[in-house]
Design a protein around this nucleic acid. Sequence first.
DNA 1: GTTAGTGCAAAGACTTTGCACACCG
DNA 2: CGGTGTGCAAAGTCTTTGCACTAAC
Lengths: 171, 171
Amino acid sequence: MSTTTRQDREPRSAERDAVRSAERALARVLEEKGLRRSRQRDVVVRTFFGMGGHVAVDALLEQVRRADPRVGVATVYRTMKLLAEHGLAVPRDFGDGRARYEPATHRHAHSHDHLICTGCGTIVEFESHRIEALQHRVARRHGFEVERRRVELYGRCARCRGVEGNEETAA
Amino acid sequence: MSTTTRQDREPRSAERDAVRSAERALARVLEEKGLRRSRQRDVVVRTFFGMGGHVAVDALLEQVRRADPRVGVATVYRTMKLLAEHGLAVPRDFGDGRARYEPATHRHAHSHDHLICTGCGTIVEFESHRIEALQHRVARRHGFEVERRRVELYGRCARCRGVEGNEETAA
DNA sequence: GTTAGTGCAAAGACTTTGCACACCG
DNA sequence: CGGTGTGCAAAGTCTTTGCACTAAC
């Protein structure tokens, strides 16, 4: 069937490539715009693309500070905004009141949806052309032309259902 | 096909009924819990169910104050939370950083999705069993059991596409 | 009269902004 | 050196909370 997936936190050497290509892309963007490179931007970019997927700003900051404790919050926000403006990162909002970004690497070029575990927070991506086509069809029937989709399915993953709610009390 | 719809702001006398049945439901809930009725709660409930659909708290407050200017923000938040806790309202988050609630009337008993116009903000609801079934299927394939869905399709409605972006400059 | 409910303003959580200094080019 | 980028802290948003007061029951 026409679905593909990708797990968060799954260690992949592809991330090294992502970091490298993102750095190159950023360098190009900065040059085009006459913007400057900086130690902080490099750290943020490297860290962000090294983390791979759905990074919340506070988590990113924490990680960035591990590499360079003197980086400020504002810089992280500003850099991520910059990345987003130039299509290198995609802002995501999962409704928990925290800004998240997702790397806009090749595997994210297509619009995709999210499965989010309400137990452990694991996020799984999937893509279904069938679903997407149906949604466009319904929208068109209502006179809408879809520009952007936001599809999140919340539920419990296999592992969390396995322990049958034990970790609730443990947490 | 298996989709149903409902437009926002469309004046319907059904809303009078919604208000009445919501008031009754609230009265029952309050009595069960040994909670008190109050002038403010009545106003908020009446206003909320009278507005019909996807009400942002600030808009609700404004409207409520038209009926009773002395109602405070906190009361509106508290009342809506109460309604949500007892299943009379459903919290919605469209990612604009404002709390929204939707009446949990009979027509909202089913899970449904939203079409949101990026031009004029119009929200249209739709329901598609086909799409929902497919989503459940995909989720199950990943070991997930879906508890809650969030599907929002952003785009431009027919009217906004008609004026071809003129109102952008006007706004 | 108890005690829940209210209004106000203060406190929170997160993000953005203003400003002086730092540093890239 | 000129101007962009940074850090800090202040300001902004939106929502929640603490507290004295009001008002249900």
